[in-house]
Nucleic acid binder design. Structure first.
Lengths: 293, 293
DNA sequence: GCAAATGATATATAGGAAGTATCGCTAACG
DNA sequence: CGTTAGCGATACTTCCTATATATCATTTGC
């Protein structure tokens, strides 16, 4: 049995007339009769009652007609599904992200993506950099958002955000009222920072900055979680240096200031498998590249 | 697109190897490659990622595979459905019957039929003879159970039950204790009968019988419904003559007796449209013929 | 009883699916 | 690093079969 048989059968069942059905199918009448006979032979069932004057469906033909419609419809659906899936309009996307992207970058990307591809189910997984890379290899996530660099020939990456460092201060801190704050003003401050193993790139940036002013920061407390970190600043445990996007985490008792003369750029990159040509991923990457800030 | 494409696609998807898939399909490898290419061309979608070393499904291929399985499965289902419908194993059967068949014949037929064709939905419609014939013409019922004769070239009929007449007596009636009861013993009795228009054949049989003993029955009360008729006998409104199968309607206060020397046979027939070749009807008729009593 | 209508049959044709031979690329191996 | 085995694609041929043409057989309506 081929779909041809079903298409022909449906048409004859609709016309109840071999001649008209053949015309509608743009074939001659004899081959149509033959194909219907073939179908009946394979099913071992008579689908039509033919008198030389009238054609009508048998009970079995009636039953088969309903199924035939369903099948032909499902074929169309399958075609559409494949095309949409290929265009990245349907599917699943697992994203890894470092916590610092959760305040600005990730929400913006997600919002834009959802708008354009509402049928994609996106799952979000907060992970630190190394975990993300492992998860990419294990195909647990398809795209990661993290701080560069990534060194692997099997992965691709692209920087999608560069942002300055900001100083986070308790709101009653004396420096708040100062016009311009330079890195040298921080020599005797106590710091609250994320642990090095947790936020490698950021940590090293901060260290480099302090060393450029010939001091090592006095780290009183470490906190991996960004919410907690800002909370500690508000609680006057110390000051901190954070990527600018953290600013959108408006926390009472914390103010943010640029550091005079600091040109540090904190970079955020997207990472994905080089061999991943999934259209879902491709669509996400394209969109993210356009949305670059 | 033809089912061939789906069958080939599914096999390649299962094997992830064109050579092995071709072997399983009993065709050579090149035509298989070509058919898959055709399919991809029609869908405008790549279904497989081919490196010269490995074949794997794309996302779209994965999605399409699920649909392809469903479609092929549904084709099998459709085939089965048509065959079963043709064999009369699936469908609907509307039966008309006169009330007197409801006690013995109809239950027995139904029981046997349901056992063999549990998937058929049977609907039952109590109607008198003329209504049944009209309903057969109107295709509201497919088979009728009634008293012959039926005179129409468009209908077929066959007698499936012959039964004697029984005398129904109130249990305290003097005739109950008599050894042999003859029709002549009934000359002075009062009768309860079904109206002539309602039970044509039966009524005429009773009249003929009485006239053979040179009297006309004294009909005190008529009752169309058989239950009511027997109830009236129990209430000593009179005696009645009924087909033997009514006996299975065991009613307190009523006893049944054969009439000595009476050879009357009450006949019940099945009637159906001559042009009805529905397998459901055919199966029912066959079974009823075998079950004849 | 003849003509029109309609589906089946017989035969011819052509379009395309399958077969054969071969190529091109990759990866594993000595 | 060249060689070889594996595997899918391509080129070309063959053969099957779906389609077309012509005709027949049967029914029905005038």
């Amino acid at each position: 049995m081929e779909l041809r048989h079903l298409r022909y059968f449906v048409t004859v069942a609709e016309e109840l007339h071999f001649g008209r059905a053949a015309k509608r199918l743009y074939i001659a009448q004899p081959p149509l009769s033959q194909q219907i006979q073939q179908l009946e032979e394979e099913l071992e069932v008579l689908l039509f009652k033919r008198s030389h004057r009238r054609v009508e469906l048998t009970d079995a033909g009636q039953a088969f007609l309903g199924e035939a419609y369903k099948i032909l419809d499902q074929v169309e659906q399958a075609k559409l599904l494949a095309q949409r899936t290929a265009r990245g309009e349907i599917g699943k996307l697992a994203l890894g992200f470092v916590s610092s992207t959760a305040f600005e970058l990730l929400p913006r990307l997600l919002y834009a993506y959802r708008e354009q591809y509402p049928q994609i189910h996106v799952s979000l997984h907060e992970m630190e950099k190394d975990q993300q890379i492992a998860a990419l290899f294990a195909r647990q996530i398809q795209v990661g958002l993290l701080r560069p660099d990534v060194d692997s020939s099997e992965l691709c990456s692209e920087i999608i955000l560069r942002e300055p460092l900001l100083l986070a201060l308790p709101s009653q801190h004396p420096l708040v009222s100062k016009d311009q704050i330079s890195i040298h003003d921080l020599v005797h401050e106590t710091f609250v920072l994320q642990p090095r193993h947790w936020a490698l790139g950021l940590y090293d940036h901060v260290m480099k900055l302090c060393h450029s002013a010939d001091f090592s920061p006095n780290v009183k407390q470490e906190a991996a979680d960004t919410y907690l970190l800002i909370g500690l600043v508000a609680a006057k445990m110390g000051i901190s240096l954070v990527p600018a996007s953290v600013q959108s985490l408006h926390s009472q008792g914390v103010v943010y200031r640029r550091l005079e003369g600091d040109t540090t750029q904190i970079e955020t990159a997207m990472v994905w498998r080089r061999d991943d040509d999934s259209p879902v991923v491709e669509a996400f990457l394209n969109l993210a590249q356009q949305e670059t800030f």
